[in-house]
Write a protein that binds this DNA or RNA. Sequence first.
DNA 1: GATGAATGAGTTTTCATTCAT
DNA 2: TATGAATGAAAACTCATTCAT
Lengths: 173, 173, 173, 173
Amino acid sequence: MTVKQEKILQSALQLFALEGYHATSTSKVAKQAGVSEGLIFKHYTSKEGLLNAVVEEGEKRFKNLYAEIVLEDKPRQVIKKTLELPFIVPEEEYGFWKLQFKLKWELKDYNTQKMQPMMFALSNAFKNLEYDNPELEAELVLHILDGVASAILKDMVTDKEELRNFILTKYKL
Amino acid sequence: MTVKQEKILQSALQLFALEGYHATSTSKVAKQAGVSEGLIFKHYTSKEGLLNAVVEEGEKRFKNLYAEIVLEDKPRQVIKKTLELPFIVPEEEYGFWKLQFKLKWELKDYNTQKMQPMMFALSNAFKNLEYDNPELEAELVLHILDGVASAILKDMVTDKEELRNFILTKYKL
Amino acid sequence: MTVKQEKILQSALQLFALEGYHATSTSKVAKQAGVSEGLIFKHYTSKEGLLNAVVEEGEKRFKNLYAEIVLEDKPRQVIKKTLELPFIVPEEEYGFWKLQFKLKWELKDYNTQKMQPMMFALSNAFKNLEYDNPELEAELVLHILDGVASAILKDMVTDKEELRNFILTKYKL
Amino acid sequence: MTVKQEKILQSALQLFALEGYHATSTSKVAKQAGVSEGLIFKHYTSKEGLLNAVVEEGEKRFKNLYAEIVLEDKPRQVIKKTLELPFIVPEEEYGFWKLQFKLKWELKDYNTQKMQPMMFALSNAFKNLEYDNPELEAELVLHILDGVASAILKDMVTDKEELRNFILTKYKL
DNA sequence: GATGAATGAGTTTTCATTCAT
DNA sequence: TATGAATGAAAACTCATTCAT
């Protein structure tokens, strides 16, 4: 991965996040990356290829993010860490995550399996805590996660700390 | 509003929902609507104008949808009806609502005030039920609503009835 | 000639003068005239037909303008009146005359014969005044007329009165 | 400036001259230049950009044309060379100059300062020759220049040599 | 006489992609 | 590896014109 190749990926990430995949032209990406348009195709073969690289990068960061959740063995901690996820993402990364959420709607076949390991970890946690319906509890937590993260990324949450505490208290965490 | 003008709006709605705004060309819309491409511009001045018309239509339906929630006076009912929203939308309308969710991400300045009346109705309801933190309770309900609706529209919820009952039970409704 | 028909002609005149024939769309003309686009075609059959009407109107005014020159019998007066022409046109009519000058360049076959009667009157005048080369004198006067009128219409002449006197003095008129 | 870029400029020049700016489509220009339409926009960003390039080219040739007049120090020669200008332009260049005259009417803000250096040279010449009103003499010469050039370019002058001699004799040159 | 909905061909412009260097 | 000239297809949009009412 050369410096310019990296530059392209970063620019694509930023622009796709800001304007959406379809609304971003390869020429814009090239300009922002400070490279020739041709180079994008040398490195990523097509615009879609570039998108895939961006998505893969997303997957990597995704895995990083919930790695410790999946590995966590204290059930309370699993739930707590999941619900805290949207609050611990640093603001510089909002653009990146916004893109991931955007792509979930924009792409026909955006990998939906991604959440499976977390689903599994959560329902296990609820099982250990002897909740009546661990699977549904897990599902609800993921929906809350999604709803809260969406709101935060769209800058609709004014007091994040307050919301976080409120949610954690609700779940007695 | 002539028949053809209506036809254009319907086609735009459908295609924007299916493929996204940027990925849908005006020529496709025209073809699907069975009209000349020029007519789109006669009636809606630009592609963006057409989008605005679609968004306005969305706003209308939105208001319809939560009209009875806002007018409801029994606090339990306000909350119940809100949380049931994603489950009562008929499947034929999924395309339409998918578009609205998509647009929230795609548009630079998608009207975020839209939820204000519901926010107000909900926090009032929680106040009447003497919850400790009615505003935050209301906010959380809206985030759940958003998360659940997203999941349903993306066809990620296998047993909707089950999920609905589970959520209502959680809130003792 | 109905009121609306007149309105169309006036608007066409103004817009063709301001922006040029090709740069003016029939829809603009209709809008400015406050009529439906269809009406233009009812009355003038085509955009070119409208142009012809404008040109004919131009010819009429043209004839009016040099009518008294051609009829004038004192030779000095013929020359004087010719050279004074650009200075006596009222400023409200500049738009109209600008259009005529523009059309001379824009149209392939703008009637060039129009000047013939003046040419004739002028060379006669110079003949009577016993100039050596009356035809060429006449031609030059017409070129001066054209150059001066162009400059005035393009708003390049700051002191019209001064220029007028200067030219008349030159010709001892 | 690549070969094709040059080709585009030449074709534009020719077509704009022949048919006028507004009446010439970019596709025509591309076809005549033997390039893809897209290339025009790569090199000149817009149709107007192409026009600007054409105008600039005009300005260059313009400067060339009167360079030696401005540098001339014998006052008689300054005036003579000015008035001879329309007669020494080779016929192959008529298309080009026609365009320049056309544009003076077609463009909203065609640079009118262009004549300033000649104006200056001429009034200086007349001052040196102790004419009563050097500025107005200069202005008149420029109007004559404009009128005569217009007539020649519109092919309205049958005997150019005759006219040239006549004018020069008038000014005793 | 007048409207305005509707069209089809055309216009300017954008875009992803290729290729010689 | 990297450039940038070049393309062809498609995009958004305009325009003169027709026609039913």
